[in-house]
């Protein structure tokens, strides 16, 4: 109950910021529309709607990192967290309270992208529902990154690291915008050592109904999500003790 109250407050704070709505829901939508328009004029296999949409739904999650990191960093800066640390809320209440509200937002973002894709010609199949379900572990990975950055950075640094650096890394190293085989070498190796391209490949496999193709990508996603979540919890508890 206490945790839900705190989670409810976090949901309101995120959804009442018009910039969050614009970037969280609007930006991925614009990308789907824009790249589909490019595809209509200059056909590129990568930008075909069934390839593009899973990538955009994963890329859109980098905004979830920004949301969670920003709200934690702002709460730390404003002493609201200090006040709440003197209440009966437990460390687990804080961690769940910051994590859970963003999952429905991530799902909503994914649903909006798929609705737009259907309007643009994506075939309606049950695989879309599976793709939305598979977005949940990926969203936890991105939220954990936010919890991690929010625990160590101030709100201005969060804007730079999560808003600029992470969104770019998540875009370049994910194989959404260009085929990683075209670059190859160390770039491709680094990309496949990170979770972003695995998340995109997994979503593409699910949408295509190729469930065998989910492996081994899902292990990369789950592994990174678990490690980042553990690291994020440790760093959050560390800053909690420091307060």
């Amino acid at each position: 109950m206490r945790m839900l109250t705190f989670a409810g407050r976090n949901t309101k704070e995120i959804l009442r910021d018009p910039l969050n709505l614009a970037f969280g829901l609007g930006f991925p939508l614009v990308l789907v529309l824009l790249l589909s328009a490019i595809q209509a004029n200059i056909p590129v296999k990568l930008f075909e709607i069934q390839h593009l949409t899973p990538g955009i739904t994963v890329f859109g999650l980098s905004f979830m990192t920004l949301f969670s990191a920003t709200i934690i960093a702002k709460d730390r800066g404003s002493s609201l967290l200090q006040r709440l640390y003197t209440t009966p809320l437990t460390p687990m209440d804080f961690i769940l309270g910051y994590t859970l509200p963003i999952i429905p937002i991530a799902i909503a973002q994914c649903v909006v992208c798929y609705i737009a894709a259907i309007i643009l010609g994506l075939s309606i199949t049950a695989n879309i529902l599976y793709a939305i379900v598979f977005i949940i572990p990926i969203s936890i990975l991105y939220i954990a990154l936010g919890l991690l950055f929010g625990s160590v950075l101030n709100d201005k640094q969060v804007g730079g690291i999560c808003g600029a650096l992470l969104t770019n890394l998540s875009a370049w190293l994910s194989g959404i915008w260009f085929d990683l085989d075209l670059v190859g070498g160390a770039f491709k190796k680094i990309s496949y050592a990170l979770p972003f391209v695995h998340a995109v490949d997994m979503e593409r496999a699910v949408l295509a109904g190729n469930f065998a193709g989910v492996f081994p990508h899902i292990w990369w996603v789950l592994g990174y999500a678990a490690i980042l979540l553990i690291l994020a919890v440790l760093l959050f508890l560390r800053q909690m003790r420091k307060q």
């Binding site: 309101k12 704070e13 002493s79 609201l80 006040r83």
Partner: peptide, 9 residues
């Protein structure tokens, strides 16, 4: 606390 600790939104 010293800083105004309210939820601004």
């Amino acid at each position: 606390p010293q800083e105004t600790a309210v939820a601004p939104g």
